[in-house]
């Protein structure tokens, strides 16, 4: 019998397919060693291969004994537990990574890249679901105003949901100027900016999700007047 035929026959007896390659590799190594040694003793290749395979015994018998040690039920349970573990660990690692990334981003106030001027605001907004810091008003080179903010989810309300509004920006007549949304489910922290149009009388209302209004006289912060 040829080496390949022996290995193929053993393989067939092992019902847990994931172990077949390992078993075959091990037996293949053994046969190669055996053939090498027999050839050193002076046998021709074919004779050495024949004898090496002969010394291994009956491949069906050997395969069946091996199959008892590579139990498909336990094997598949083991494989399933690995998959399950990976399914649990991967999202957990990803979650920690993403959360960590956002927490790092919210250590320092954000300044928009295309800002021609920035003005410090430094107002804290205490919302039922979030603690918000209104950091800066940025004026871009193209004349657009943006309010940058950082927000941290309070743990009691950590399931704020997709797209829940943290606050909106209005003028004192209640006209909508812009709003800040909280992006993803379960975000522990985030930072962002909201563009707004300069209100007619320079008074900006920051309306929290709970309805509380903080009035901001923009002239106190910015030297711009419109």
């Amino acid at each position: 019998m040829k080496k390949e035929e022996f290995l193929r026959t053993v393989r067939k007896q092992i019902h847990f397919v994931f172990d077949r390659d390992d078993v075959e590799n091990e037996l293949n190594q053994h046969l190669s060693d055996s053939i090498e040694d027999l050839m050193e003793e002076g046998l021709a290749v074919e004779e050495a291969e024949y004898l090496a395979v002969e010394q291994m015994g009956n491949p069906v018998e050997v395969g069946k004994l091996l199959n008892q040690e590579h139990n498909p039920l336990l094997g598949y349970l083991w494989a399933a537990s690995r998959v399950l573990l990976a399914c649990l660990i991967c999202p957990a690692v990803l979650y920690v990574g993403v959360m960590g990334f956002f927490l790092l981003k919210t250590i320092t106030p954000m300044t928009l890249k295309d800002s021609a001027k920035t003005y410090d605001v430094g107002i804290d907004l205490e919302l039922p679901t979030h603690k918000v810091k209104l950091d800066k008003i940025c004026l871009s080179e193209s004349g657009r105003y943006s309010l940058t903010y950082r927000a941290w989810t309070k743990f009691a309300y950590s399931r704020a949901g997709i797209g829940s509004q943290l606050f909106t920006l209005e003028d004192d007549a209640g006209n909508h100027l812009g709003g800040a949304t909280n992006g993803a489910i379960g975000n522990l922290s985030e930072c962002g900016s909201k563009d707004f149009d300069w209100p007619e009388n320079s008074v900006l209302h920051i309306v929290g999700v709970d309805g509380e209004i903080i009035e901001l006289d923009l002239t106190e912060y910015c030297d711009e007047k419109r």
Binding site: E26, Q29, H30, Q55, M56, G57, V62, L65, Q68, E69
Partner: peptide
Amino acid sequence: GYELIKTLKQRSNDVFDMKEGTLYPILHK
């Protein structure tokens, strides 16, 4: 495995001349 078989044969003066393939079920067990 192959090393084990050789040692086993040498030590036992070829008395334990088992079919080499049957070593592996023992090892895996």
